[in-house]
Every structure is written in C-alpha cells, then in structure tokens.
C-alpha cells in the first residue's frame, strides 16, 4: 500500500512534507542556534544575521523558538492521534462482540463526543484537570476518538460477517495467513485514512490549545504559542505570524492530502483508475449526466 500511495503525486508531496516536519521535530531543538528561553534587551527586533526571524517582545530569538517548539507541537499531535486510536479502536472492536448493552452505550457515547463543541470542551476540561500537557493530550484524544471507534467498528463488522474468512478457514488456510491476507487488507486502509485525518485535526487542536496557553504553557515555545505572543505586537512585526502559521497549515494540509491519497489507492474505484487508462475513459463517460 505504501508503494501505491507513493506512486501518486499527492502521496509523494504529502509524505515529503510530513517527513520534513518530522525531521524538524527530531532535530529542531538541537539545531536552534540560540537558547529559545533566553531573554534579551533586543526586543521586537527585525530580521537580521543574528536573529533570522527577529526577536519577540521579550527579546527571545524567534527562529530558535520556532525550531525548539517544533518538537512539542508535533509530538503533541502524534500523542493525540495515538491516544484517539487506542481509546477509539478498542471499544470499536469490542462493541461488535460484547453484547447489546455495551454496544448501545458505546454508540451513544460516540454520538455524544461527535456532537460536543470539542475545542470548548478540550479547553475547559484540560484547564479544570490541571492544565498539563498530559491532561491536554488525554482529553483531546478522547474527544477525537469517535472517528476510530466508527472505523474500527465498521471494519470489525465487515470481517465478522464476511464469508471469505469462513471460506478460507474451511479451505484450510492458516489463521495468520487469513489475518494478513483478508483482515488486514480490509482494516488497514480505513485505519490509515483515519490516522492521517486525525493527525491533521489533532494538529489544529493542539496548536489551538497551545495558542491559548493550555497544555504546553509559556514560556516553553510551540508554534501555536508563538502565534499568540505575536498577536499583541502585530503593529511592530506584522510578518511575524507567517512562519508558524505556514508550518501549521503545511502540516495540516499534508495530513489531509495523505488521507486522500490513501483513500484513493485503497478504494476499489481508485485502484482501477490507477491501473488502466481504459477504465478511466469509461468512468469519465459514465460520469456524464445530461449533455
């Protein structure tokens, strides 16, 4: 699947961007030329050789803060995504097997989580629970978990009710082979799509939270936090928000693009589209409504 995703331009572009962001997260703090927390008298400085992106209202080097903050920003989104996967997928799978009461309750909880104004809840609950990074990731992870709940539940249902698993068992295929061949093939693509989507959503939420000073708190730098500290000084440094905003948007865009690419190659239609020009021509024709 990875190879097929990478055969799409969208897949390659998104993978490249996400890889660059990941590198930034790993190496950023090491590469920061100056101490991101060091205050100086040189406040709100413009771009210069010593301060590539100027300094903020406390005279801290913005470029260093940007690099240093990338780890917290990216790791936050990753944690949210993994949290959501665990919190969503386990009840999602179990809801198929654990009986009607459990199924009903989990379905209602999932409905509710979807209907909640999640940023408001994330902010309020995180702050009430002590305003730490752990709390923020936990709360956000739970709030975005319904996607994984639904996806894993649907996939489990499809596998549980499918006859090919039974047929394969009867024809003497080994269980690991069946899981690799049939179950993974069905379950993996939707999970991958959901992971990529949640990464994007999680990134927006995490940066929104850090923008508000929730979860990761100042003075520790994050991309969202950088934007917040720029907000009060737009008169002096109007260009300041661009770098962090661009990084946030690029990450979200790449995540969405990746989700689309995976969806494209894993769907039956998408695969046909890739493999044969003739099929594509037919689809174009069939797509026509009235002339």
């Amino acid at each position: 699947m990875v190879r097929r995703v990478l055969s799409l331009t969208a897949g390659r572009v998104s993978a490249a961007i996400l890889l660059a962001i990941a590198l930034l997260a790993v190496l950023g703090p090491l590469l920061a030329p100056l101490d991101p927390l060091a205050v100086s008298d040189d406040t709100l400085a413009g771009i210069s050789g010593s301060h590539w992106l100027g300094t903020d209202y406390l005279g801290r080097d913005v470029f260093s803060r940007l690099l240093d903050g990338s780890r917290a920003s990216v790791v936050g989104a990753l944690e949210v995504t993994l949290m959501a996967l665990v919190v969503g997928a386990i009840p999602g799978i179990l809801s198929v097997y654990l009986g009607r009461v459990f199924e009903w309750v989990t379905l209602r909880v999932a409905d509710t989580l979807i209907a909640l104004p999640f940023l408001l809840f994330a902010v309020a609950i995180t702050a009430l629970l002590g305003n730490g990074i752990t709390q923020a990731m936990l709360v956000t992870g739970v709030l975005v978990s319904p996607l994984f709940f639904r996806v894993s539940r649907a996939a489990t249902l499809a596998v549980a009710r499918s006859q090919y698993v039974e047929a394969a068992l009867i024809s003497g295929a080994s269980l690991p082979w069946i899981i690799r061949r049939h179950v993974w093939a069905k379950v993996l693509p939707p999970i991958a799509v959901a992971l990529a989507q949640t990464l994007g959503v999680g990134f927006i939420i995490v940066s929104s939270l850090s923008f508000l000073g929730i979860g990761v708190q100042p003075p520790e730098p994050t991309w969202g936090g950088l934007l917040a500290s720029d907000l009060g000084y737009l008169d002096y440094r109007p260009w300041a928000p661009f770098a962090p905003a661009l990084l946030i948007m690029a990450t979200v865009w790449a995540s969405n693009l990746l989700a689309d690419a995976i969806r494209d190659v894993s769907g039956e239609a998408g695969r046909a589209l890739l493999n044969s020009r003739k099929v594509r021509a037919n689809q174009a024709a069939a797509a026509g409504g009235t002339a």
């Binding site: 024709a285 069939a286 797509a287 026509g288 409504g289 009235t290 002339a291």
Partner: peptide, 8 residues
C-alpha cells in the same frame, strides 16, 4: 431527445 450522455 438531444440528451446524449457526456462525451457522446
């Protein structure tokens, strides 16, 4: 009827 599908 003048309503051929697209591409026809």
């Amino acid at each position: 009827l003048g309503v051929l599908p697209e591409h026809f």
